[in-house]
Computed example of a mutant assay.
Amino acid sequence: MKEYQVALIEKNQLTNAGILNSDLWENANCLTDFSSPWKTESFSKIEFRALWDLEFLYFNFRVFDTDIYIDRKDDSVESIGNSDRVELFFRADNTLNPYYCLEMDTAARIMDFKALPNKNFDFNWNWPKKGLELKPSKDDVSFTVEGKISIQSLNELNLIHNNIIETGVYRAKFSEIENQEYEPTWISWVDPLTETPNFHIASSFGKFKLMV
């Protein structure tokens, strides 16, 4: 399995918005080896970084893309599912029984759900209260989705074992093909080796190692 090392930082280094000071991300390893195995077209560069401080896991997606598509009909699962977004999946083990999904867009909408094998999704489930915060932003060349997840919530869901969190890291990019019809490009840190796009499979996960 691919492994990403999550550097440890000191506690209490948050901004007033509750997310990390920007210069702290220089301490993080930069993950860029994303691929879209099902398409030959190129896609915008993605930089993913993570840090932790014994209380929270912090994450930062920076995507070098300014052509962002958001389905703004409402805040439903369907609307978020038809929008550009970044995703983190977590599992206790490779049985995927269960696993937990966070799909997040630049409008700060979160599709959080519990899943079982064969795409058996429970959209009525939500990440533990106060266990997740999100802060999206944009600049002239990119968008960023930054957030923090409490270590307590990860432990409550039995997702940390020997300082390892088995994690999937993904992006969905929607591009207009014609007449306001949009088609997704599915992008993953780990190539799941499937004929068609599928993140909901054990082979799409890697490991986050919490360094101490």
Rank of each mutant, 00 (worst) to 15 (best):
V145N: 14
N162H: 15
K207C: 12
N126F: 07
L154T: 06
M104V: 07
D105P: 12
I177R: 13
I110T: 09
L116R: 08
E176V: 01
M104S: 08
N155K: 15
H161G: 05
L193S: 15
E146F: 00
M104L: 11
K209P: 01
V86S: 07
S204P: 06
P192V: 01
P192E: 06
Y170P: 06
V145H: 07
D93F: 00
G147L: 03
L116P: 00
T167A: 13
T106H: 06
I187R: 08
S188I: 02
T106W: 08
S79E: 10
S79Y: 08
R85E: 11
M111I: 00
I151N: 04
Y99H: 09
F205P: 07
E181F: 14
K129M: 09
N82L: 13
V190P: 00
W189I: 02
F205I: 06
Y182C: 02
N162G: 10
N94T: 04
W186L: 08
G168L: 12
E176A: 01
S79K: 07
I187Q: 11
A108Q: 14
T106P: 04
P117V: 00
S188Q: 03
L193Y: 14
Q152L: 11
I80F: 07
P197M: 03
N94D: 12
G81K: 12
H161I: 03
D105N: 15
W125P: 05
L193A: 14
S137D: 15
Y100P: 07
F143M: 10
K114S: 08
R109Q: 11
D93M: 05
D140Q: 14
F121Q: 08
T106G: 04
S150K: 05
A107I: 08
E178L: 09
P192A: 06
N158S: 14
H161L: 10
G131A: 00
T194E: 05
Y170S: 01
W127I: 02
W125S: 02
P128K: 00
E166G: 03
L210K: 11
F121K: 14
V141G: 01
E87A: 13
L134D: 03
T144L: 10
A108I: 06
T167I: 12
A172W: 08
G131M: 04
K119T: 10
Y170Q: 12
F90V: 08
I110Q: 11
S142A: 15
L193R: 15
L157Q: 12
A202V: 07
Y99A: 00
S204F: 09
L96H: 10
T167L: 08
K173G: 07
I187A: 02
N179F: 03
L96P: 04
E178M: 05
R109G: 04
L116K: 09
P136M: 13
